[in-house]
Design a binder for these strands. Structure first.
Lengths: 265, 265
DNA sequence: GCTGAGCGTTCACTCAACTGAACGCTATCC
DNA sequence: GGATAGCGTTCAGTTGAGTGAACGCTCAGC
């Protein structure tokens, strides 16, 4: 956990929510998701979220009734309803369906491993994966989170942000998480790549998350006002990767990104 | 809940929740998940869930702040936070990781499509899928729900319940959902299979959910006191399926189920 | 241009949800 | 064995969240 946030102070001190119980319930869910074991007692949660035990107890009863959490003995865990809701979110995204359809019929991408991801703070979350290339079996799964600095799609996504936000997220000296010897180490190294990514219109990852694997990624132009920032990536083995192949992949990724961003086109 | 559900009367009339705002917020999420388009306006939600617009507005503001929903113009959709929470729920289950590891190295299963699911009322929810057999591309995805009567894993899971609960869920005359000509039609038909499933230790599905496809499934012995009921299934094409292959698959499924149920073994 | 239906928002009143101190209970410790 | 610390639950007072009527707004229809 590189992020310095004090464990789970999910409640804004000054701001007052129009439905505090809901805000606090969400904080409880966050605390459970963030905890190491995924199991917390009432007292743990009360302490973590910063609300009285009696109130926490009421929240937990309501959350349990809604199956958003589950009680096992004296411990609470996230509830299975969350799987349903998360799946409903994914299943409903037109983008995901369009993504599959395009990959199936693309000339180069149809034989590769392609993923669609969204930006979430300093991480990306993988939403769906098309596997046209069964030989490459990757560890990442739907719903997985990955620091933006470690993957092409992350770099492609933050390259679209304004510099002020980027500076705030990644000060020059910021230490980045490392997975391979080629992983970027500092905020400065990361930012050095962004202007190039902006110019050429795609991001490249050279064994920065997995040795032997390279990635290409583009961002999807935001559709509508507040849609999530989506990105597309394709993964290839470095051993067989060629620049010619790469430029064709980028071309198809950009075509897909364009059609995702402009549903009418 | 033999739900002939009136759209989304998520609020119990008599019962009073210890934190109504949370219960109602959960009902809002359900309504969004259940809606056809996944996009509802404030008025839609107010009508659907049965609470005043002003209160709904407050709930939506709080939910939006927590990123559990997202507002796009005048319409609301489920929020990306749900993907994270759902993934946190899944990621925390040791079972899923162990499931993948085992499938990778199994002699028969490693070449098939294997899934792990959990019981949720009269449905099963698919938690993870291993695809060792890329030729068989199925429509079901992680998080999908399926009535228990229509799949092998559903039958395997309810076979473990006590008769009283089963009778309550599936009275003899109960009409079951139908997907193919071979789908089971009534509670009586379903229950007739259960004792056999208990005796032989696995469940079989013969084109009951998809024509041309057969499934084998076993249930995982419940680990600990209140863990969710997990089941495993393997899917095969009827055209190429042989009983010899089937018995080997069952053997491996049972082995996996046993190791999932007894983490020390 | 006028009307009406439907949308989301605002606001003062009121009832019920939140609080925190006290309780009973179960380990754990010396 | 008695004392302590920590757990979750209970309960009455009070504050703050929920209510619904009224508002301003947009869009369709005639």
């Amino acid at each position: 956990m590189a992020d310095s946030h004090p464990p789970a102070s999910a409640e804004k001190p000054g701001a007052t929510s129009p439905a505090p119980a809901v805000t606090r319930a969400a904080a409880v869910l966050d605390a459970l998701a963030a905890s190491a074991t995924g199991r917390l007692t009432l007292s743990d949660l009360s302490r973590e979220v910063g609300i009285p035990k009696s109130s926490t107890s009421n929240l937990l009863l309501a959350l349990e009734e809604a199956r958003l959490i589950s009680r096992q003995g004296g411990e609470f865990t996230l509830g299975r309803k969350l799987v349903e809701l998360g799946a409903a979110y994914l299943g409903r995204m037109d983008e995901v369906q369009e993504f599959y359809r395009y990959c199936e019929q693309a000339s180069v991408l149809s034989r590769e491993t392609v993923r669609i991801a969204m930006l979430d703070g300093t991480n990306v979350i993988y939403l769906a994966r098309y596997e046209g290339h069964p030989a490459v079996r990757l560890t990442s799964n739907i719903g997985d989170k990955m620091p933006v600095s470690l993957c092409a799609v992350g770099k492609a996504l933050i390259a679209r942000l304004n510099w002020h936000d980027i500076e705030e997220m990644f000060p020059d000296g910021a230490e980045l998480p490392v997975l391979t010897p080629k992983s970027l180490r500092t905020g400065a190294e990361l930012k050095a790549q962004l202007s190039q990514i902006r110019e050429q219109g795609f991001a490249f990852e050279d064994e920065e998350s997995t040795t032997g694997v390279v990635c290409l990624a583009v961002s999807v132009p935001t559709r509508g006002a507040h849609g999530p920032s989506l990105g597309l990536s394709v993964t290839a083995l470095k051993a067989t990767y060629t620049p010619e192949q790469g430029s064709q992949m980028v071309k198809e990724l950009q075509e897909l990104a364009h059609s995702l961003g402009n549903p009418m086109g």
